[in-house]
Amino acid sequence: MKKRGIGIGISFYGTGYGNGFPDISRAIIRLLPKGKIGIYCGVTEVGQGAKTSMRQIGAEVLGLTVEDIELVHENTSLMPDSGTAAATRQTYNTGNAIKVACENMRDELFEKARIQLGLNSTVGLILEKGEVVLSFFPQKRISYEKLSEIYIGDDTIETKGEFIAQTTQMDPENGQGAPYWPYTFNACAVEVEVDTKTGIVNLLRSTFAQDVGRAVNPGLLEGQMDGGFAMALGYALLEDLNLQNGKMKNNKFSKYLIPTAMDMIDINNIIVEDPESTAPYGAKGIGEPVMIPIAPAILNAIYDAIGVRITELPVTPERLIKALGEAEEKKIG
């Protein structure tokens, strides 16, 4: 018999190292030949879209397109430490460091333009498509490219930025404190179909809402949500190491099953924007939290369908049939 059920999972997640641990990101911004801007920082790309979003933040500050920004982040001899690609911290921490460094670069470009344009001060200067322009007399302008030709070698225009996340260590006596900041929130609803004869669980549809602060790149965010859902689907229904006496029995992908495109469903992703005042343009990271509510939602949906609470993952057909049998025995007993 096939039965359907709906389940909901919700979560909140504190980003960064937390608990008062120093959480520092640094960045260097350099004016490159042809008026390009180089961002040098240790933001590691692990599939979360750092190569794109960090350049977007820099481009926004400096009035450029993403194509005008070069990101150098895989050569430790050239870049400062920006911390690990962990704890969903890079968008918030390193994004803030890049924003600070680019704001410092903006001020430096204003000052160098003031000198070259023979102005009294930097008042009224703005950045406009790769040029520094005197807003109320736009005939007075100079391009980034021209400045890069003037300031070369030891005089190359360069600025730095640093950001330290604000967290406090929890009080060991009472457990009080502010161990993380910021927090991100999400909720997921899933409908499943459970075959009580075979123990197979099929996902039918899902709606997934994720708080992102502000969406720097909505496409990347939806990709992250889809990826987190897929990982959690495997965690909930498929991936089983089958440890026996400390040995992995499912030690190859022919036995250790992971979700494929055929296992995934179309997800109704909802991006919730509530800008975080301390974040770069309000953006929060969502790297890890997108996985957290999915498995609880699936388990709740299974419970709603069959009235039996599964407490061991993954919910393989064998485990589900066993749980149904045990529940039936209790009824009879």
Results as ranks from 00 to 15, higher is better:
Gly5Ala: 10
Ile10Asn: 08
Ile10Tyr: 04
Phe12Asp: 09
Phe21Val: 14
Phe21Lys: 14
Arg26Gln: 14
Ser53Gln: 08
Met54His: 11
Gln56Phe: 03
Ile57Ser: 02
Ala59Met: 10
Leu62Trp: 06
Leu62Glu: 05
Glu70Ala: 12
Glu74Met: 12
Ala86Asp: 07
Thr88Asn: 00
Tyr92Glu: 04
Gly95Phe: 06
Phe110Asn: 08
Lys112Pro: 00
Glu128Ile: 00
Leu134Phe: 11
Gln139Thr: 13
Ile142Val: 15
Glu149Val: 05
Ile152Cys: 07
Glu158Trp: 00
Glu158Gly: 00
Thr159Cys: 09
Gly161Trp: 02
Gln166Asn: 15
Met170Arg: 14
Gly175Asn: 13
Glu193Asp: 10
Val194Gln: 02
Lys197Trp: 00
Gly213Ile: 03
Gly213His: 02
Gln224Asp: 01
Met225Phe: 01
Met231Asn: 03
Leu233Lys: 06
Tyr235Cys: 05
Leu237Asp: 04
Leu243Asp: 11
Gly246Gln: 08
Met248Val: 13
Lys249Trp: 03
Lys249Glu: 11
Ser254His: 09
Ile267Asn: 02
Val272Pro: 00
Val272Ser: 01
Glu288Tyr: 08
Pro293Ser: 06
Pro293Met: 04
Ile298Met: 04
Gly307Tyr: 04
Val308Asn: 06
Val308His: 06
Glu318Met: 10
Lys322Phe: 07
Glu328His: 13
Lys331Phe: 12
Ile332Tyr: 13
